[in-house]
Amino acid sequence: MLDDAMAPPPAPLLSVRGLKVHFPIRQGVFQRQVGAVRAVDGVSFDIGRAETLGLVGESGCGKSTTGLALTGLVPLTDGEVTFDGARVGSETGRDLARFRQRMQIVFQDPFSSLNPRQRVRDILRAPLEIHRIGTTAERREAVFAMMNRVGLRPDQAENYPHQFSGGQRQRIGIARALMLNPDVIICDEPVSALDVSVQAQILNLLEDLQDELGVAFLFISHDLGVVEHISNRVAVMYLGKIVEMARREALFAAPAHPYSELLLGSTPSLDPRRRHRFSAGFEDVPSATAKPSGCAFRTRCPLADERCRAEEPALSPRADGRLLACHHR
């Protein structure tokens, strides 16, 4: 559907520019700010309607914080978010409520993200009540219809979360996100806590919902197999920045950034005849609190030289349409 990596459709549904989330580091009796963790440090991307953008990286790379910042669950330090042509962030009251209706989130842990003291029907009805949608009878109907839609039985509406398995709980989480008929759902590691057979059920469900409802996903995951399966385009994050963004096929066929290469090369294969011979060597992995100067990946990069130490490479378009932040590729 989209022809190149960065500027997909003429007017993207969601457009993020220069997103930054910094957390202060405080010390001493007076809790003076002595520094900042630059968890997300200038991230830009677009998502089109009914599109899935995969956001992949290892722990601490800022991928989850990106999702939380977009939904307003952590404050932005800087950056611009445009949703369906309108700038987000300046609105209050009703406009903000309307925006929130259109962007929802599904969390990783279906155990801690559902209130254990609420019945499923109350969990699913809450978004409608908050946004004052429908009459009591209509809300009831909407809850039953949505339960059917995500593969739960309406007679389970009276049950509490603990009476469901992990996969069913994730279905409840997805149903809750869909109640307001959003345009975008941030999926933050939605299948990471699930067994592989159940994970497949949930991935299939998400794809069906996208086909039927035209909802777009920002799909955040550490699992390259899952991201490859579900994404149209993929952004690879390292220490708060996107280092490569490309169409799914392009990225997985030929990763261009040395970090993308390392990620793909570290993923175990499913073919016992073609085992990797992984190196046992220790590698020091920097964190967002102590980022290297210049290119953050240079301390682990086989191509790194003086320039990488001195100058941070910008994310820029390449001939094949991908975006890349590397001096050497």
């Binding site: 290892e58 550490h222 570290s266 993923t267 990797h276 011979r277 590698e283 992995v285």
Partner: peptide
């Protein structure tokens, strides 16, 4: 473990 660290530990 993260996938790059997993690779090292499997190698080890």
């Amino acid at each position: 473990l993260d996938v790059t660290v997993q690779a090292q530990i499997l190698g080890l």
